[in-house]
Write a protein that binds this DNA or RNA. Structure first.
Lengths: 209, 209
DNA sequence: TTTTTGCTACCACTATTTAGGTAGTCTTTG
DNA sequence: CAAAGACTACCTAAATAGTGGTAGCAAAAA
């Protein structure tokens, strides 16, 4: 039973050097082959159809679109697709959304290669694999249910240095309503003021600067 | 004259996958050899003495210390060291400090491998090499001379959601002085309020969340 | 259908921030 | 040594932000 088909791996990342590293690593494994590479979301969905990989390594941030959107696009067409999200850092909001969207694994790019190989094998075997340090982060913020769409929108305006009156004009609502939104944002994020709300929002990946 | 010694390259980065990619790429060039790798600042300075590389690729963010501090440490011992900074993103403050500290090149990690090889060869030949998109960013903010140490300190406190009174207590100065600092910070960064000052500070790499 | 959630809006009041100016001390630079 | 920059401090006044409570409406969920 040692003559199984190798795991067909597909890598999507806009860092050529990192792709090169993944390629070298994967192709050095007897039970894996890298079948394709893509550097944008558009390429990714297109090449997925072409190569039908067993496991896809998908960067969270791509030049043309969010990795999560790519994930959703691929899974809407291939619901059985096994996709592992790869990212440089740890905004827990993104993790949560990725898992809800059907990611089978989540990896930080600074992890040892053995970890990556392990996750590929586990995910290929049908399991899910999320590293404990990420999982614990998730649990930590399960309680504070996320911001609503509108609240995120307001938070973005706040981060741009707009005052409440300006935000009101830009979003076509009253200044009082803006205050209400900001109050809720601060409550949910546990922020003392709007500035810390922005800081926390960035740290958690709710908004990006 | 085709039988030159190969360029001895040394790579310092805490991302194993990226190091693997660099290693593969460099070792595939006829005129280069990778002579060593390090993943922390401590390892880096130690191994630099050991390997005496021609060109060093140094990540800006390392787990134990800033890449700039490593740069300074190495160059204080080996002033002729040719070091290229590598980073994922573009906070122009860091670039400026790295160049002032004697970096010979500055590269974003998402650049094509050919660019990396090009920079290695140019820097080895004694030239400096900064990509135009980074150089232009530098010029853009040359005018607004940077924040002072104290101002950066205050900006960090602001980002933590502290009010002026709290910042005053934490820094053992009067609330009025805090106001003055924040006023100067906003002027220098071109921010409309403290919140935007934090946002801009993060974007420029002055502070990190 | 009743309940909940999200978005909207207003009021009153307090707290905080921002803008403007002046000025002393110390260190670094020319 | 004079000049410049950095840090400190105080004052006044206006603008903005934050707190707390009430409430209507529509859509989604129970």
């Amino acid at each position: 039973m040692s003559n199984k088909q190798p795991i067909r791996v597909f890598s999507v990342d806009d860092h050529p050097l990192l792709r090169e590293g993944i390629a070298t690593l994967v192709n050095n494994q007897p039970d894996m082959t890298l079948v394709g590479e893509a550097s944008t979301g558009a390429e990714a969905t297109q090449q997925f159809r072409q190569y039908a990989p067993d496991v896809t390594l998908l960067d969270l941030r791509l030049p043309d679109m969010s990795g999560i959107d790519v994930l959703i696009a691929i899974r809407s067409e291939f619901p059985q697709a096994r996709i592992v999200m790869l990212t440089t850092f740890e905004g827990d909001v993104e993790v949560q959304r990725a898992l809800q969207a059907g990611a089978r694994g989540y990896l930080l790019k600074n992890m040892p290669p053995s970890e990556l190989l392990d996750v590929i094998r586990q995910v290929h075997a049908g399991k899910k694999r999320i590293p404990p340090e990420i999982a614990s982060q998730l649990l930590e913020h399960m309680s504070d249910e996320g911001l609503t769409e509108r609240e995120v929108e307001v938070l973005r305006e706040v981060a741009d240095g707009n005052r409440n009156r300006e935000i009101a004009e830009r979003l076509f609502i009253s200044e009082e309503t803006v205050k209400v939104h900001i109050k809720h944002i601060m409550e949910k994020l546990g922020a003392a003021d709007r500035t810390q709300a922005v800081a926390i929002g960035v740290r958690r990946g709710i908004i990006q600067l």
